[in-house]
Amino acid sequence: MLAISIFIFIASTIAASGATGATKDHVIGRMKVTLMPEYDAQSVLVIQEGKFADRTAFPSDVKFTLPMEVTKLTDACSLSPGGHHFCQIFEIKKAGKNKFVNIKLPFPDFFIDYQYAPFAVKKNSQREFTYSVDTSYPIKTLEVHVQQPARSEKFKIEPASYETYSKDDFEYRKYTFKNVKAGEAKSISVSYFKTDTAPSVDLKFSSMKTPEVFEGSTGEILLVAGLAALGIIWIARRRVKKA
């Protein structure tokens, strides 16, 4: 009886993994990574969007590798053939020198975006970082777009083989890679100099930061004020009772 149960369990596990698609077999047909240093925050906004090649393998679990310095993963979504965005519940885990996120995609299209802080933002400072593209899966066509921050000088990126274009008052550098193997190293090094610490769109369009539950230090002020008031009341009541 026990042996039969174990056998059924193993068989169903294998069948289930076959039904959802083994992640190791996935190939990305097309992926576009956009790096936007200091776009709307003092960090690098990364948008990673694309499409897995085999539509029939979905729904399926997939895994994306994130830089260790990730501060916030904002969105992890899939796109239906009709263009609907399905934003997924995700969980970020650590593994060695990286973080990664597992999500279950109902469709082969994906969109994730996150902020990460590879350098400190200070006035009159050189900012540099090297971004390693996530090549967990083989990629047939990979594009990497790098936005030059507003008010930056001596903007330099490596490797040097890129195209340039303008969009919405920003300059971009674009790389195109074909047939990237899984695990292949693809790094982009970015450096520039800026005198101020404000994000690109802060001055252009006024603040575009997403508000958190409390703006600035409002939450801390409320907490401290509440504790202080409680403390005062408690002390006063004790004195009254003693009296």
């Binding site: 576009k32 969007e49 694309g50 499409k51 796109l79 053939p81 009709g82 263009g83 609907h84 299209d109 994906f110 969109f111």
Partner: peptide, 19 residues
Amino acid sequence: GGSQLKIGSFEQESSGSNL
């Protein structure tokens, strides 16, 4: 097309293949 295609233009292909 409907409301799900209200963004972008077919000049710029994004992750959605049918914008």
